[in-house]
C-alpha cells in the first residue's frame, strides 16, 4: 500500500498583534488508499484547523509549519493555482456547516456544474447528466428537481449529501470530511454514514473523517487521532484506543460516551 498523505509535525498558528497564537501543535499522520483516519476531539480542539491546513485553505492570517506530502508532493511549497487544481479533483472536501456552504444566489445545479466544469473537461450536457448521476448515487430522489432548487430550499442533510457527492465525484485520492454528520438529524446521519462506509470499502480513497462523536467514528475509522486544545493526545489503531486508552483525556471521552450509551439503552428499554 502506497502512502497517499504524509503529514509530519504540522503546526498551525494564527497571526495576531502580539505574535502567533498556536492552534494546532505538531500533528503527524499517514494515510494509504482505502484507509480512514478518524479525528476525535471537543469543540475548538483544532480538528478543522488541521483539515484546512492539509487542504491549503488557510489564508495569510495563519502560519503553517511542518511537512504535508500528498502523493509525494510537498503541498506547503506549491503555488495556490496548483493547490486549487488538486482541490475538488484529487482532494475532495466536505465542510462542517452544509446550510451556509452554498452561495444563496445560485441554484444547486449551477453550483455543481460550475465545480465540475472547473476540473472536468466535458460539454454542458455531459456535465448535467453527471450532476444527476452524482445525486442519484447519493440516493437523492427527484434529482432534476433538486438541481433546480436554491440552497435555502433544501434541508441540511440534503445539502450535506450534495457536498459528499461533489467530493467523491471526480474520483479523488483523498477525502477530507469535516464533521459531515453534525448538522443533520440522526436518520439522515445513519444513511450518510452508510455512504461513507461504502466509499471507504471501495478501497480507492484515503479518508480523514472528523467528528466529536465516538459512535460515528467507531463505525468508519481504522486509525483514530484524539485532539485536545490543539495537541494530539493519542493516536493509533481504533480498537486499541477504544479498548484501552492511555491518555486521561481520551479515557474521559470514552467513559462519557459509554455512560451516555448506557443511559440511552436504559431509557429505551426501562422494563428490562
Amino acid at each position: 500500500m502506497s502512502c497517499v498523505l504524509d503529514v509530519a509535525n504540522v503546526s498551525v498558528g494564527f497571526r495576531q498583534k502580539g505574535g502567533v497564537l498556536p492552534l494546532v501543535k505538531n500533528a503527524s499522520l499517514r494515510l494509504s488508499a482505502g484507509q480512514c483516519l478518524g479525528i476525535l476531539g471537543e469543540s475548538g480542539s483544532g480538528k478543522s484547523m488541521l483539515c484546512k491546513a492539509i487542504a491549503g485553505l488557510l489564508d495569510e492570517n495563519f502560519t503553517v509549519e511542518g511537512s504535508i506530502r500528498f502523493e509525494g508532493l510537498q503541498l506547503l511549497r506549491q503555488k495556490p493555482e496548483k493547490l486549487r487544481r488538486l482541490r475538488g479533483q484529487k482532494i475532495g472536501i466536505v465542510l462542517q456547516n452544509p446550510m451556509s456552504c452554498f452561495d444563496p444566489l445560485y441554484r444547486i445545479g449551477e453550483q455543481m456544474e460550475e465545480t465540475l466544469a472547473e476540473h472536468y473537461n466535458a460539454g454542458r450536457r455531459k456535465i448535467y447528466t453527471k450532476c444527476i448521476e452524482i445525486l442519484e448515487l447519493m440516493r437523492i430522489r427527484q434529482a432534476i428537481n433538486v438541481l433546480a432548487q436554491y440552497p435555502h430550499q433544501l434541508s441540511g442533510g440534503m445539502l450535506q449529501r450534495v457536498m459528499i457527492g461533489l467530493a467523491v465525484a471526480l474520483d479523488p485520492v483523498l477525502i477530507i470530511a469535516d464533521e459531515p454528520t453534525t448538522a443533520i438529524d440522526s436518520i439522515s446521519q445513519h444513511s450518510i454514514m452508510q455512504e461513507f462506509v461504502r466509499i471507504k470499502e471501495a478501497g480507492q480513497v484515503a479518508m480523514i473523517f472528523v467528528s466529536h462523536d465516538l459512535g460515528v467514528l467507531s463505525r468508519i475509522s481504522d486509525d483514530v487521532m484524539v485532539m485536545h486544545g490543539g495537541r494530539v493526545m493519542e493516536q493509533g489503531r481504533a480498537q486499541d484506543i477504544f479498548a484501552n486508552a492511555q491518555d486521561v483525556y481520551t479515557r474521559h471521552l470514552i467513559e462519557q460516551h459509554t455512560a451516555v450509551m448506557k443511559r440511552f439503552c436504559a431509557a429505551i428499554s426501562p422494563a428490562v
Binding site: A55, L57, P80, R84, R85, L86, R87, G88, Q89, I93, L95, N97, S100, C101, F102, D103, P104, L105, Y106, E114, T115, E118, H119, M163, L166
Partner: peptide, 29 residues
C-alpha cells in the same frame, strides 16, 4: 468571511470566479 467562499475554494474554483460570480454578486445584492 462567509462559509460559502471557503467551500467555493474547497471545490477548487478559480479565485477570479469566486470574487466576481460569488462575492461581488452577493455584495451588490
Amino acid at each position: 468571511r462567509e462559509d460559502y467562499v471557503l467551500y467555493a475554494q474547497a471545490r477548487g474554483l478559480k479565485q477570479r470566479n469566486i470574487l466576481v460570480r460569488h462575492i461581488l454578486k452577493n455584495s451588490l445584492q
